[in-house]
Computed example of a mutant assay.
Amino acid sequence: MIHMVKLCVGVASVEELESYRDERAHWWDADYGEDVHVHRTRMMPKKRAEMENLSSIYWVMSGTISCRQRILRLAPYTNAEGKHYCDIIMAPDIVRTVPYPKRPFQGWRYLRPEDAPPDMDSNDNENSAELAAELARMGLI
C-alpha cells in the first residue's frame, strides 16, 4: 500500500474542502455516483494497484497536511480533445489528521504509510487542531 499527497489548490481549510465535497464532481463533469468525491489530475499513478481501495489522499492546505480521504478507485479519463487524465474517486468522508507541514510542489507525490500523519482522535476539537498546526509550523511535532 502507498498513499498520495496532493496540494488542495484554492482551498484554505478542511471546512472549505467539506463545503465543496458535494459539488466538485460537477466541476469535472464526472458522474461516478452520489456518494463519492472526485478530483481530476493529469497523471495516472504507476502504483495504481497499491492504491485503489487501500490508501488515502492526504490534502495539503496552507502549507500543512490537514486531512485525508480514502481512495476508492483511480479511473482513466480522456477529454474531447484526446487529452488523458486520472480521476481520483474518493470516499466523501474527510478525516482530519495531525497537521504536518509540507512545502509546495507540483502534481502529487507518493506517501509511504510510515510517513503519513496520524488521524486526529475523534475527541480532539478544533482548538487542539490549531495548536497542533502551530506546533508543526514551529517544527516541534
Rank of each mutant, 00 (worst) to 15 (best):
R21W: 12
D119G: 02
E126Q: 01
D119V: 00
E52Q: 11
V36G: 01
D29K: 03
S13R: 08
G107C: 06
V38K: 01
R112Q: 14
W27S: 00
T97N: 12
D31Y: 02
A129E: 02
W27C: 03
D22Y: 07
A91I: 11
A80H: 15
L111K: 04
E23Q: 12
V11R: 13
S55I: 00
I57M: 07
F105V: 10
N79W: 15
T97D: 07
V60H: 01
D124F: 03
R40S: 14
K83G: 06
E15R: 07
V36S: 02
R24Y: 14
Y58H: 04
M120L: 13
S55C: 00
V60D: 00
E81I: 12
E23S: 13
Y20S: 04
R109K: 11
P104D: 15
R42P: 03
T41P: 08
I94T: 09
S66T: 12
S19Y: 09
E18R: 04
R73L: 12
V36R: 03
S122Y: 04
A49D: 15
G107P: 04
K46N: 12
A25I: 07
I65W: 06
M44S: 08
V60M: 05
A12T: 13
K102A: 12
I89F: 02
S19F: 05
V60C: 00
M61D: 02
T64C: 13
A30R: 14
R21S: 14
I94F: 01
V38M: 00
I89Y: 04
K83M: 14
M120E: 10
Y77F: 10
R112E: 15
S19G: 02
E114Y: 08
I57Q: 00
I65N: 07
R112L: 14
E34P: 07
R109V: 05
R21D: 11
M90N: 05
H26D: 14
R70I: 01
G107Y: 13
S122M: 00
P118S: 03
